[in-house]
Amino acid sequence: MEQVLKLRNLKVIFPSHGGIIRAVEGVDLDIHQGESVALVGESGCGKSVTSQSVMRLIESPPAITRLDTLEFNGKDIKNYTHKQMQDIRGKEMSMIFQDAMTSLNPVMTCGKQIDEMYIRHKGVSKKEAREYTIEALKLVGMPEPRSRAKNFPHELSGGMRQRVLLAMAFACLPKLIIADEPTTALDVTIQAQVLNVLRNMQKKHDMSLLLITHDLSVVSNIADIVYVMYSGKIVEKASVEDIFHEPYHPYTRGLIASVPKLSDTEKEFSQIPGTVPHPMKKPNGCYFHPRCQHATKQCKKAMPPLISVGKNHEVRCHHPLKDMKKEGKA
């Protein structure tokens, strides 16, 4: 499989009033052709910063970014200029944001905003672009695409706006789609629809997908590879089967257990105690140890390295948990 994205040792910090916010601390990311990769973590863990760094959307100042390698599609885009990046964005990699209302221009019709993509990157005429647009809207399951294209964003419902964003992102059939919490603001029924479209489009056109989310239930429906991120570091990386059937990191287990399920019968929900550490005051040693039931002295002292525990399965833990049944649900 051809490698679409290769990111090595990404570090991002934000200097601010009280000190330095350590947003991302050395993240490696590999995405291959046709693969969908999920980056999972709670808010503040640096997952959005990582995805925006891939798009080179993090501005400096305020941020300071360091990375060893950023290869996209075989090209080293680490030192690309703003203009070179603009040619890639939208055409070869595109992004879907969580908040459809603020990522669409409120004074332009939705159709026109999609037209722009075709006119810019494909160099077609306005009329042709509109035909493409309507085709694209049809593909993402928009009812009555021809008349909806003439609507302004505020005239559409949340689900429809998200579809417009999907159509825009898929417009030029990019190699890589980055979806940052694409369904968080939506109702469950609409969420299912949007995820369906996202998955079908991705599989059909053999695109790669980087999905950013805090919700593991979304991941189980769409991803091939899962990266679990905690406080700026990758704590576990594995295939989706391994993540759900054989999670090694206590945090991953906690995340899986905390998803509310219809099959649950107890009134008590299993929870991860405590909160994410403040990005300026991270604990010594393993960042997860204050919330970890299995923490030992070693965990308080040193940050564990990312060790391999199986085929394509890495975990950052001093005491990786093996048997899920024996330990119970973390």
Partner: peptide, 28 residues
């Protein structure tokens, strides 16, 4: 924005280097 620009200008580059280095795995 204005506050952060000020902080950015006054950053101690050696300190920033230290922060970055402290994130490395082999340095853990």
């Amino acid at each position: 924005s204005s506050g952060v620009y000020k902080i950015f200008k006054n950053l101690n580059s050696a300190y920033v280097e230290d922060v970055f280095n402290s994130m490395d795995d082999n340095q853990k």
